[in-house]
């Protein structure tokens, strides 16, 4: 299949998923409430005299994003099971990788929306400066998000037809999330501490390599995961 067709069909799937979510708003609202709740709870419990905000904030940011993303990823293929729409997608004369790419795009938009809510709230509650490092911070968040959402979207397809999909997804996904999350926490910590950008470049490179490897692997493996 030609690349323009692949991308056009992927966009059709992504646009449909986003329209379904826009109409129902159930997932985005529940995840947004979750993000606000976690940040409020952590903010209430922290002791700034024990650990400085700059040291604490990166871990809390990424723990929040991780669990918010898992909640989002769980629903990625659930909407295809409702009326066996997944069979319709598999019947369509499209490259099955375009289904994966469409789901990946929709999940990235979904998680990015959550991150757009989370970062300003973190800056507000934890009194950390993000504006001076906004561009590098966006790069870290974007690269880490692409990595774990790419793997999560694949695992979401693998587990959706199992009885314990909501339990299996985090169990399978969390080990694969450890590398990008560790690198993202370290890079975010350096940025918020005002360290030179050169100190984060190594983590950014690692994240970029992780993204490339796992997006390619997921595109190649996805067709096999949806066969009945």
């Amino acid at each position: 299949m030609r690349s323009p067709d692949l991308l056009r069909h992927a966009w059709a799937v992504a646009a449909k998923d986003l329209l379904v979510e826009f109409r129902s708003r159930t997932a985005i609202l529940s995840v947004a409430v979750f993000v606000v709740l976690v940040l409020v709870v952590f903010n209430s419990a922290r002791d700034p005299t024990a650990v400085s905000n700059v040291d604490l904030a990166p871990s809390i940011l990424w723990v929040t994003f991780t669990f918010a993303a898992i909640l989002a990823l769980n629903r990625a293929f659930q909407i295809e099971l409702e009326n066996q729409a997944l069979e319709g997608l598999l019947l369509a004369p499209i490259d099955r990788s375009s289904i994966y790419l469409g789901k990946l795009i929709a999940n990235l938009v979904f998680v990015a929306t959550i991150e757009l809510i989370g970062v300003p709230l973190l800056a507000l509650f934890f009194n950390v400066q993000v504006l001076p490092f906004l561009l590098p911070l966006i790069a870290v968040i974007a690269l880490a998000t692409v990595g774990f959402v790419a793997v999560g979207t694949l695992f979401s397809a693998m587990t959706v037809r199992t009885r314990f999909a909501e339990l299996l997804l985090p169990v399978l996904l969390l080990p694969f999330m450890i590398p990008p999350l560790s690198w993202a926490v370290l890079a975010t910590g350096r940025l918020l501490a005002g360290r030179p950008l050169s100190e984060t470049l190594g983590w950014l490179n690692m994240l970029a390599v992780y993204d490339f490897v796992f997006v390619v692997l997921a595109v190649l493996l996805f067709p096999a995961t949806v066969n009945e």
Partner: peptide
Amino acid sequence: QPQLYAQLTVRENLRFWASL
């Protein structure tokens, strides 16, 4: 099963499947 998305309209569903 109808292989349709409940939140989308009839027209949106047909447009989506036709696009594939």
